[in-house]
Amino acid sequence: MPVVQIQQNQQRVNDFLSVALSQITINEPQLHQAMNHGLLLGGKRIRPFLVYAVGEMFGVEKSQLDNAAGAIESIHAYSLIHDDLPAMDDDALRRGQPTCHITFDEATAILAGDSLQTFAFELIGQAPQNAEQRLEMMQCLSKASGYQGMCGGQALDLAATNKQVSLAQLEQIHRLKTGALICAAVELGAIAANASRTHRELLNTFAQNIGLAFQVHDDILDVIGDTETLGKPQGSDEAANKSTYPALLGLESAQDKAKQLIEQAISSLQALPFDSTLLQAFARYIIARNQ
C-alpha cells in the first residue's frame, strides 16, 4: 500500500503550494486567506501523487513535476470550494473543517475558487518543461477541468438530482466530474516525461478505470463510513437524493464493480515496459481507503 509515498508527496506539494501562495502580492488579505484555506487545509493529494508517480516511472525528477502537481491540486481545490456553495451541494463541512463560504462568506469563496483556477494555469506557465510541453499541459488541464470535463460533469450531476438515472448516465457523470481530473493528473505526468502515444493510451485506460473506481468507492463510503473519518457528513448523497452506485446496483454489487475496475486498471499497467509497482499498489489502495 503506497501510504508512505502518498504522505511524502502530500508534504512535498503542500510545501510547494505554500511557498507559491506566499509569493503572491497580497492586495486583499481576506481573499488570500480564503485561497490558503481552500488549498492547504488538508486533503489526500491523490492527483498530485499521480503526477509524481507517473513522471517518476519514466525517470523524471520530482522537481520537474512540482508545477504540474501543484496546478492540478489548485484546480481540484477550486472545484471543492465551488461545489460546497449553497447554489451547488450546500455543504458546511469539508475535510473536517468549516467550508470556505462558512469560514468567510459566499462572495469571498467564489472569488477564492476563481483565483485558484487561474493560479493553476500560472503554475503551468512557469513549469520547467519546454514551451510545447507547457502548451500541451495547459490544453490537457483546461479540457479536463472545463465543459468537456469536471464542470460538465458537475452540471450533469446537478441536473440529475431528484431524478432516477441509468447506470450509463451515472458513469458519464462521474467519468467527467471525478474521472477527468484523475486522467489529467496521469496525462500531465506523461507529458512531462515525453511518453510515447502507445504508453499514454495504456495510462489513459488505467486512469479512466481508477477514476471511476474512486467515485464508486466514494459512494460506498457515503453508505458505510462515518462523518468523523470521512471529514464530511455521512449519508450526504442520500440526503441530497443523488443517484449513487450502491443505490443503483446494491452495496455488494457496487463493491464488486469497484474491484473489477481496479483489476482492469492494473492489467493496463502490466502492459507497460516499466516498473509500475507503485501505481498498481495505489490502484488497490483506492478501494481499500476509509476516507
Results as ranks from 00 to 15, higher is better:
V51N: 01
F49I: 05
L41W: 09
S63A: 14
I72R: 00
P48W: 04
P48S: 09
I72H: 03
V60N: 13
N67V: 06
Y52S: 05
P48A: 08
N67H: 15
A68V: 02
E73N: 07
E61N: 15
K62E: 07
E61F: 00
E56N: 12
G43S: 04
S63L: 09
F49Q: 05
V54T: 14
Y52H: 07
G38V: 13
D66E: 14
R45A: 01
V60P: 06
G38T: 15
K62H: 13
S63N: 14
D66F: 13
R45L: 04
V54K: 09
L40G: 06
V51C: 10
A53L: 06
I46P: 08
R45V: 08
G59M: 09
N67D: 13
R47Y: 07
N67Q: 11
A69I: 01
L39T: 10
K44C: 06
G55S: 12
A53Q: 08
G38F: 08
Q64N: 14
K62W: 03
E61K: 12
G70K: 07
Q64V: 00
N67G: 12
G55A: 08
A68R: 02
K44Y: 05
L65C: 01
L41M: 14
R47D: 00
A69N: 06
S63E: 15
Y52D: 01
V51M: 12
A68Y: 11
N67L: 05
Y52P: 09
R45M: 07
M57N: 06
A53I: 04
L50F: 07
R45H: 09
G38I: 07
G70N: 10
E73W: 11
R47M: 04
L41T: 14
I72W: 02
A69C: 12
M57L: 13
K44P: 13
A68D: 08
K62F: 02
G42S: 12
G42T: 13
A53D: 01
G70V: 11
L65V: 00
I72F: 02
A69L: 05
A68P: 03
Y52F: 15
M57P: 01
Q64S: 12
N67A: 11
G70D: 01
D66M: 11
F49L: 09
G38E: 03
E73F: 10
E61G: 08
G70M: 06
K44S: 04
D66T: 11
P48F: 02
S63R: 14
N67C: 11
E56G: 04
A69E: 01
G42Q: 13
F49R: 12
M57A: 06
F58T: 14
L40V: 12
F58H: 14
L65H: 05
R47Q: 11
V51H: 06
E73M: 09
L41H: 15
G55K: 04
G42N: 06
R47G: 03
A68N: 07
A68E: 11
G43C: 08
R47C: 03
P48L: 10
L65S: 04
Y52I: 00
L65F: 02
G38W: 10
E61H: 13
L40W: 02
Q64D: 15
E56R: 15
L41F: 13
V60K: 08
V54E: 02
R45K: 12
A68M: 15
K62P: 03
D66P: 11
D66I: 07
L39W: 07
M57Y: 00
Q64L: 09
V60T: 13
R45Q: 03
G43N: 05
R45G: 01
I46C: 11
E61Y: 05
A71F: 08
R47L: 04
I46E: 01
E61P: 04
L41N: 15
L40E: 03
